[in-house]
Design a protein around this nucleic acid. Sequence first.
DNA 1: TACCTTGTAGTCAAATTTACTATAAGTTCG
DNA 2: CGAACTTATAGTAAATTTGACTACAAGGTA
Lengths: 231, 231
Amino acid sequence: MKKNSFPETIIDALSIDCLIFGFKKNELDILLVQHGEGISKGKWALPGGWIRYNESTDDAAGRLLSDLTGVSNIYLEQLRSFGTVDRYPDKRVITIAYYALVKPENYTLLPGFTAADAQWFKISEVPELPYDHRTILDAGLSYLKHKVRHEPIGFNLLPKKFTLLQLQELYEAILDQKLDKPNFRRKLMKMNLLEPLKEKQTAVSHRAAGLYRFDKKIYDKLTEKGFTFEL
Amino acid sequence: MKKNSFPETIIDALSIDCLIFGFKKNELDILLVQHGEGISKGKWALPGGWIRYNESTDDAAGRLLSDLTGVSNIYLEQLRSFGTVDRYPDKRVITIAYYALVKPENYTLLPGFTAADAQWFKISEVPELPYDHRTILDAGLSYLKHKVRHEPIGFNLLPKKFTLLQLQELYEAILDQKLDKPNFRRKLMKMNLLEPLKEKQTAVSHRAAGLYRFDKKIYDKLTEKGFTFEL
DNA sequence: TACCTTGTAGTCAAATTTACTATAAGTTCG
DNA sequence: CGAACTTATAGTAAATTTGACTACAAGGTA
């Protein structure tokens, strides 16, 4: 194919916007950046950018994400594109939205970003967003809510080792409903999806819970045999 | 916003491709068109086209669909975009894939199309497709398989009035598995989603089955009350 | 040691699923 | 006409899953 001679050249009718979700203190968070210029100056918005001629859209989203967090092995998937005529002022831009799930280990932003540039917000405290970013966020939230029940992606929001209660509280936050502890526990355990570690919680002022790990290899093996994750 | 002075101008780095599904004779079908020019000349491919500056991507997909079928009230939704660097030869083009579900009533193609231009293919008999169209088709099929179990969209592939067996056979074709007749029937009926008509099948060489209709208003009302379709 | 808090096991009725059997209502063929 | 056939529709019963609980264990704190 004809390669563009300036690989940094971008496709100007098409952008990427990222929904970067995190989970801490039993709250779902989202990472926003502050715009330095343009009519949305000073407003918090979804981090985004442009696609270069020599990178796939997936790569472009990955690059933007790693520019913010410095990490590249983060769960990242396309949501869908948003293409109404008037979504962006001044010129026609269609955007492809991606969503990412970030573990607490990767919560720190790349040095160079200050709290004035990029910041985690609780979902319930997201400020007014420019363009159609609120629409994109709502679409992402509702997709997350659905997806988390049919695929084991929630683990990407927890540390590598976690307790069953942490997992339950994650689900309660995303699905926005209380769950019964013994029943939740039993359901998960019956799936044979979680690998129980020989470790326990430390530094807690109550009986320490056992730690578990999610192993994608186990999940893939079960899936081959016809297992489907449902919660 | 700055309007483009030539509304027919298209965005040249971005295209639309449509997965148009149909269902007949217990087989899932897809509509393909034959390319008249370019390196894919003579090959059957997904119908597609370009997005104009003054239309949303949804509208562009609707326009392409109605150009083929002459009908505009067809179930149509975005799948997702495909944006690898090399997916299209000669220049960088990212495509947004849409999928549509077509009722038998709308199976006839618009006059002007001959069998040489556009044609329904059984899913199991789709020829080799150009570019990444096979990837797009597979993504659409797997999404359809998932979606049909969680939302009542299958009805868009059946005539307005249908029997329970027709519905069951539709599900069997999409999910690729046999289902138990009495159990399938009971499950559907318990949802109170299907409106039984006072009519029966005609011109069948066996006991005529009752006809049913899917009413989106009923579904919306149930959904408000917390009902979720699951099969 | 008493008393919190959270972890983990177990119980049991209700609801749902699964795998069937049975019967009804038409058609077709001899 | 009636036996054979096909599909429709109703029903049944065991097995499994869900939902709402109770009970007890294992720490830590005062």
